[in-house]
Structure formats: structure tokens, C-alpha cells
Amino acid sequence: MKRKFEIFKNGLFKENPVLILTLGCCSVLAISVTVLGGVGMGLALTFVLVCSNVVISLLRNIIPNKVRIPCYIVVVAAFVTLVEMITEAYMKELYDTMGVFLALIVVNCIVLGRAEMFASKNTVGDSFFDGLGMGLGYTMVITGISIVRELLGSGTLLGYRIIPEGYQLGIVTQTPGGFFCFGGAMAILIACLNKKGRKIDSKTGCGHDCSSCGLGCAGRGGESK
């Protein structure tokens, strides 16, 4: 159980998919303008990630190696379609906020990355907790960034006005402001990890556990860049 908890916690901080592995940044930058959209996107991705991780882990001995990527995409697409239909039916407002980015979860790097790097090599239980940790890590980041962006950029939180009209920083809701917040969040997380004594490998430049890391860095023979 302790190992499961470690896998879960890994996704939240030490290997946060967005801020440390820098995967799935596109949707974070695009959807983090409002808190509602941010939370919705985070939860949708978490659901897809957990389900696809479990299914792919179950099928890991059946899927032929040569066609594994199309197989992963079929599994992921099935769950994304499910989420899309449910949100469109019951949460129309959220569905409109997320727009095309909901459908684009199919090709989200986090989902495919975890399928390739974790679920296809580990047991069902481990994959479940990995998906949950990674998904909640993503949700945490996108929610945090969207709180800052909605508060500073629109002066509201979940639609309720906090800062009076006329005192907003318009740039925060635009793309450059998204990058500012993204960089700020990244710096804060890394500063916190360094304070806790994260060991950075001087050869690979990262503090990951190579067995579960999706980066494919020089430490593992540089199989991908």
C-alpha cells in the first residue's frame, strides 16, 4: 500500500505532469482563463486518465507491440467520447467553456505518455494510482493557475465579482499572461521541491525516478529527446 501511495504522490509533486514533465501545456494555457473551465478540464482529464490507464494495463499483454499507439488511442478516445457526451448532456455551460479542448484530450500528451511509459509496464493497481496522481496533479495546477488568471484578469472567482470593474489586468487573460502564470507556478513548485532537498542528478539534470519517468533522458540511454 505504501508503494501505491508513493506512486500517487509522485504525480502530484515530484513528477507533476504539467510543471515538471511539461506535458499537456496546451490545454493548461488555453482553458485556465476561468476557474470553472479549469476545474472541469482537470476532472475530465483525471477521469479519462484513470480509466485509460486501468484498461491499457489490463490489456498490456494482449496489445501487439507494433500497433500499440493506435490501440492506446482507441481506448482513450472511447473514454473521451463518454466524457464529452456526458458533459454535453448534463453540463452544457462547462461543455461550451472547454470547447474543442475536451475532444483534444484524446491526443493529450499526459494520457498517451502515461499509457506508454507506465500503464503498459505496470500492474492494474499501480496504473490506477498513477493515473489518479497524475490527473489530480494536472487538476491542481490548472485550478491554481485559473484562480490567479480569473482573479487578476477578470476580477471574478467562479463568476462572482471580487475586484471592482476597471481594475483588471487584461493581459493575464491573454496568452502572454498564461505563460507568465505558467512560469510562475513552475518556479514555485521547483523552489518548494528544492527546499525539501530534492536531489538533482548532475548528469541528467533531473530529480526523477528513472523507472517511472516518461522523459526518456540521457540517463536511460537517450531513447528519445
Partner: peptide
């Protein structure tokens, strides 16, 4: 530029 984009 930030001022220009924020307080146009």
C-alpha cells in the same frame, strides 16, 4: 506593452 495590452 503589458500596460498597452492590459489598459488599452
Amino acid at each position: 506593452t503589458v500596460l498597452f495590452l492590459s489598459f488599452t
